[in-house]
Protein backbone atom coordinates (compact mmCIF):
# COMPACT_ATOMS: atom_id res chain seq x y z
CA UNK A 1 0.00 0.00 0.00
CA UNK A 2 1.80 3.09 -1.20
CA UNK A 3 1.32 6.44 0.52
CA UNK A 4 1.18 8.04 -2.91
CA UNK A 5 -2.04 6.19 -3.53
CA UNK A 6 -4.84 8.66 -2.65
CA UNK A 7 -7.26 5.89 -1.63
CA UNK A 8 -4.72 4.43 0.78
CA UNK A 9 -3.98 7.87 2.15
CA UNK A 10 -7.65 8.54 2.74
CA UNK A 11 -8.00 5.19 4.50
CA UNK A 12 -5.07 5.88 6.77
CA UNK A 13 -6.43 9.31 7.53
CA UNK A 14 -9.90 7.96 8.37
CA UNK A 15 -8.39 5.29 10.62
CA UNK A 16 -6.31 7.91 12.42
CA UNK A 17 -9.34 10.18 12.80
CA UNK A 18 -11.36 7.31 14.24
CA UNK A 19 -8.62 6.49 16.78
CA UNK A 20 -8.37 10.14 17.80
CA UNK A 21 -12.14 10.30 18.29
CA UNK A 22 -12.15 7.09 20.34
CA UNK A 23 -9.29 8.43 22.48
CA UNK A 24 -11.22 11.64 23.03
CA UNK A 25 -14.33 9.75 24.12
CA UNK A 26 -12.43 7.51 26.53
CA UNK A 27 -10.78 10.62 27.99
CA UNK A 28 -14.22 11.89 28.88
CA UNK A 29 -15.10 8.89 31.01
CA UNK A 30 -15.45 9.46 34.75
CA UNK A 31 -12.30 9.32 36.83
CA UNK A 32 -12.51 7.33 40.02
CA UNK A 33 -10.39 9.64 42.16
CA UNK A 34 -13.26 11.99 42.96
CA UNK A 35 -16.85 11.43 44.06
CA UNK A 36 -17.90 14.90 42.91
CA UNK A 37 -17.69 16.38 39.39
CA UNK A 38 -14.11 17.21 38.46
CA UNK A 39 -14.05 20.75 37.00
CA UNK A 40 -10.26 21.21 36.96
CA UNK A 41 -9.26 23.31 33.97
CA UNK A 42 -12.89 24.02 33.05
CA UNK A 43 -14.18 26.59 35.52
CA UNK A 44 -12.44 29.96 36.06
CA UNK A 45 -10.15 30.37 39.08
CA UNK A 46 -11.42 32.11 42.21
CA UNK A 47 -11.51 35.89 41.81
CA UNK A 48 -13.92 38.38 43.35
CA UNK A 49 -14.20 41.64 45.24
CA UNK A 50 -17.08 41.58 47.75
CA UNK A 51 -18.18 42.76 51.19
CA UNK A 52 -18.40 40.16 53.95
CA UNK A 53 -21.07 39.91 56.63
CA UNK A 54 -19.06 42.10 59.02
CA UNK A 55 -18.83 44.87 56.42
CA UNK A 56 -15.19 44.10 55.58
CA UNK A 57 -13.99 44.25 51.97
CA UNK A 58 -12.69 40.83 50.90
CA UNK A 59 -11.12 39.30 47.78
CA UNK A 60 -10.01 35.82 46.74
CA UNK A 61 -6.61 36.62 48.32
CA UNK A 62 -8.29 36.82 51.72
CA UNK A 63 -8.97 33.08 51.59
CA UNK A 64 -5.78 31.93 49.86
CA UNK A 65 -4.38 28.77 51.43
CA UNK A 66 -7.87 27.52 52.36
CA UNK A 67 -10.23 25.25 50.49
CA UNK A 68 -13.04 27.56 49.37
CA UNK A 69 -16.60 26.48 48.57
CA UNK A 70 -18.50 29.12 46.62
CA UNK A 71 -22.29 29.05 46.62
CA UNK A 72 -24.89 31.49 45.31
CA UNK A 73 -28.14 31.72 47.32
CA UNK A 74 -30.29 33.97 49.53
CA UNK A 75 -31.42 33.83 53.13
CA UNK A 76 -35.18 33.80 52.36
CA UNK A 77 -34.64 30.67 50.25
CA UNK A 78 -37.28 28.15 51.31
CA UNK A 79 -35.59 24.84 50.56
CA UNK A 80 -32.50 24.45 48.36
CA UNK A 81 -30.13 26.82 50.22
CA UNK A 82 -30.77 25.57 53.76
CA UNK A 83 -30.53 21.91 52.74
CA UNK A 84 -27.34 22.49 50.72
CA UNK A 85 -25.72 24.48 53.52
CA UNK A 86 -26.79 21.83 56.05
CA UNK A 87 -25.16 19.14 53.88
CA UNK A 88 -21.96 21.19 53.71
CA UNK A 89 -22.10 21.64 57.50
CA UNK A 90 -22.41 17.86 57.93
CA UNK A 91 -19.47 17.31 55.59
CA UNK A 92 -17.36 19.70 57.67
CA UNK A 93 -18.22 17.92 60.88
CA UNK A 94 -16.97 14.68 59.29
CA UNK A 95 -13.65 16.43 58.64
CA UNK A 96 -13.10 17.20 62.34
CA UNK A 97 -10.27 19.62 63.05
CA UNK A 98 -9.40 19.82 59.34
CA UNK A 99 -12.64 21.75 58.82
CA UNK A 100 -10.75 24.90 59.78
CA UNK A 101 -8.89 24.64 56.46
CA UNK A 102 -12.22 25.18 54.67
CA UNK A 103 -14.30 28.34 54.14
CA UNK A 104 -17.79 28.32 52.70
CA UNK A 105 -18.61 31.57 50.92
CA UNK A 106 -22.34 32.19 50.62
CA UNK A 107 -22.86 34.94 48.01
CA UNK A 108 -26.35 36.39 48.22
CA UNK A 109 -28.27 36.97 44.97
CA UNK A 110 -30.74 39.10 46.96
CA UNK A 111 -28.55 41.91 48.41
CA UNK A 112 -31.63 44.12 48.82
CA UNK A 113 -33.04 42.02 51.67
CA UNK A 114 -29.83 40.29 52.77
CA UNK A 115 -28.22 43.00 54.88
CA UNK A 116 -24.84 42.17 56.48
CA UNK A 117 -26.40 41.51 59.95
CA UNK A 118 -29.03 39.20 58.47
CA UNK A 119 -26.39 37.37 56.41
CA UNK A 120 -24.20 36.99 59.50
CA UNK A 121 -27.00 35.54 61.63
CA UNK A 122 -27.98 33.16 58.80
CA UNK A 123 -24.51 31.83 57.97
CA UNK A 124 -23.41 31.56 61.62
CA UNK A 125 -26.23 29.14 62.22
CA UNK A 126 -24.47 26.62 59.95
CA UNK A 127 -21.02 26.96 61.49
CA UNK A 128 -18.02 29.25 61.97
CA UNK A 129 -16.61 28.34 58.54
CA UNK A 130 -19.63 29.89 56.78
CA UNK A 131 -19.29 33.48 55.58
CA UNK A 132 -21.95 35.59 53.90
CA UNK A 133 -20.81 37.85 51.06
CA UNK A 134 -22.67 40.52 49.15
CA UNK A 135 -22.38 43.08 46.38
CA UNK A 136 -24.77 45.03 44.17
CA UNK A 137 -26.16 44.30 40.76
CA UNK A 138 -23.56 44.93 38.05
CA UNK A 139 -20.74 43.33 40.07
CA UNK A 140 -22.95 40.42 41.18
CA UNK A 141 -24.02 39.78 37.58
CA UNK A 142 -20.37 39.78 36.48
CA UNK A 143 -19.40 37.34 39.23
CA UNK A 144 -22.24 34.98 38.32
CA UNK A 145 -21.27 35.22 34.65
CA UNK A 146 -17.67 34.31 35.52
CA UNK A 147 -18.96 31.02 36.96
CA UNK A 148 -21.50 30.50 34.13
CA UNK A 149 -24.43 30.65 36.56
CA UNK A 150 -27.53 32.82 36.66
CA UNK A 151 -30.15 34.07 39.11
CA UNK A 152 -33.37 36.01 38.93
CA UNK A 153 -35.71 37.61 41.43
CA UNK A 154 -39.44 36.90 41.24
CA UNK A 155 -42.28 39.44 41.49
CA UNK A 156 -43.15 40.47 45.10
CA UNK A 157 -46.53 39.23 46.40
CA UNK A 158 -49.01 41.34 48.44
CA UNK A 159 -46.74 41.13 51.52
CA UNK A 160 -43.65 42.12 49.55
CA UNK A 161 -42.26 38.59 49.68
CA UNK A 162 -40.63 37.14 46.62
CA UNK A 163 -38.62 34.11 45.64
CA UNK A 164 -35.40 33.99 43.67
CA UNK A 165 -34.02 31.42 41.26
CA UNK A 166 -30.34 30.67 41.53
CA UNK A 167 -27.71 28.06 40.80
CA UNK A 168 -27.51 24.92 42.92
CA UNK A 169 -23.79 24.46 42.29
CA UNK A 170 -21.14 24.50 45.00
CA UNK A 171 -17.82 25.37 43.34
CA UNK A 172 -14.85 24.01 45.28
CA UNK A 173 -11.44 25.70 44.91
CA UNK A 174 -8.08 24.49 46.21
CA UNK A 175 -5.72 26.58 48.37
CA UNK A 176 -4.29 28.28 45.28
CA UNK A 177 -7.73 29.41 44.12
CA UNK A 178 -7.92 26.90 41.27
CA UNK A 179 -11.40 25.47 40.56
CA UNK A 180 -11.30 21.73 41.25
CA UNK A 181 -14.69 20.18 42.01
CA UNK A 182 -18.37 20.86 41.85
CA UNK A 183 -20.95 19.64 44.34
CA UNK A 184 -24.68 19.90 43.74
CA UNK A 185 -27.65 20.09 46.05
CA UNK A 186 -28.01 16.33 45.61
CA UNK A 187 -24.39 15.53 46.60
CA UNK A 188 -23.98 13.61 49.86
CA UNK A 189 -22.05 14.91 52.87
CA UNK A 190 -19.87 11.77 52.73
CA UNK A 191 -18.87 12.43 49.11
CA UNK A 192 -18.07 16.07 49.85
CA UNK A 193 -16.05 15.18 52.98
CA UNK A 194 -14.15 12.48 51.07
CA UNK A 195 -13.16 14.81 48.24
CA UNK A 196 -12.36 17.82 50.43
CA UNK A 197 -10.17 15.56 52.61
CA UNK A 198 -8.25 14.62 49.46
CA UNK A 199 -7.90 18.26 48.46
CA UNK A 200 -6.56 19.17 51.92
CA UNK A 201 -4.14 16.26 51.56
CA UNK A 202 -2.80 17.98 48.45
CA UNK A 203 -4.43 15.82 45.76
Amino acid sequence: MSLRNPVARTRIFLAAAFCAFAALLSGCSQDKTWDLDNITGIVSPLAFSLTDDTGRHVTAETYRGRIVMLYFGYTHCPDVCPTTLATLSQALSKLGAAADKVRILFVTVDPQRDTPPLLKRYTEAFGPEFIGLRTDDPALRQLAKRYRVTYSLGKPDAHGNYEATHSSAVFIFDGKGKARLMAESSSSAAAIAHDVQQLIGGA
Partner: peptide, 12 residues
Amino acid sequence: YTSYSVCGRAWP
Protein backbone atom coordinates in the same frame (compact mmCIF):
# COMPACT_ATOMS: atom_id res chain seq x y z
CA TYR B 1 -28.36 17.72 30.72
CA THR B 2 -27.88 18.71 34.35
CA SER B 3 -25.89 21.91 33.84
CA TYR B 4 -29.09 23.92 33.36
CA SER B 5 -30.43 22.86 36.75
CA VAL B 6 -27.04 23.28 38.40
CA CYS B 7 -26.28 26.71 36.93
CA GLY B 8 -29.82 28.05 37.12
CA ARG B 9 -32.39 28.48 34.36
CA ALA B 10 -33.21 31.80 32.73
CA TRP B 11 -36.74 31.59 34.13
CA PRO B 12 -38.58 28.99 36.19
